[in-house]
Amino acid sequence: MEFFIKKENEKKREYDALVIGAGPAGLTAAIYIARGRFSVLVFEKVIPGGLAATTHLIENYPGFPEGVEGEELGRLMEKQARNLGVEFAMEEVVDVELEGEKKRVKTRDGEYEGKAVVIATGSSHKKLGVPGEDKFTGKGVSYCATCDAPFYKDKKIAVVGCGNSGMQEGLYLLRFVRSIDFIEYFPYIPADRILQERVKKHENVKFHLNHQVLEIVGDERVEGVRVKKRDTGEEKVIEVDGVFIFAGLSPNTAFLNGKMELEDGYVVTDEFMRTSIPGVFACGDVRKKVLRQVATAVGDGAVCGASVVEYLEGR
């Protein structure tokens, strides 16, 4: 134990670049920076791979004709980064000081210094903000299909949100559950056609389009979802044992509030992935942009890594 603690204290605290978040964007940026022969430390509060690691199969990232499990893709990206000498700190960043030549990043366990900082913290699931949601989170309300599906074997569930995430995770949930009631705010299904077709092949699915969720109802456990049809105002309760929510994402930028330019919480960058502060860059889902996918996160990460290298070479 003594030895472990000592080793921890001796950990290097100064790097050329500090990358916050080890999703596809942060890992790609780190790979480019390391190949430029600069030292780089990546902070990660959960596991490398990011949000992509929670999805069971990624089918639209080129190079994997049969699709690739999210966690596996994360593991491969991490390995590639480690092979190049990228270091990791499995710590949550809680505060940053970004002005000036030397930037500081604070975690729950310590403080680090870097000449450049990359923000690649991605986003987290948005809550619906309806009554019953908080009360039943982890007790019938879930935001992660791969994590919680086994608890709903042969049960009736609702999936809120018919975007790509909702449909894709719905397909995974169908391996376990008895039936799914899909609820969508818009009058149409926003997901890619290929996913819609696959879901609709199942007989035990039902769609409630143009419906708004009002409440998750139940006493001790979830008993149903109260919804309102948006054009007629008609209300009903869909009886289910569990609710999975895939109703959009919100950026992980709370620790940046008041420190740089944000728009709706997303970090604003130029096409070189530069933020409003010199030496501070951002890439991936955390940026204000149009398409949030692994392929675009990796694209951002590459541009960002190259920009960081250029910035560091000029120091």
């Binding site: 596991i47 791979g49 690691a53 929670t54 499990e69 966690e71 791969t146 994590c147 919680d148």
Partner: peptide, 8 residues
């Protein structure tokens, strides 16, 4: 459960 990041 497989694919549960906090489990890993």
């Amino acid at each position: 459960a497989p694919g549960c990041p906090w489990c890993t």
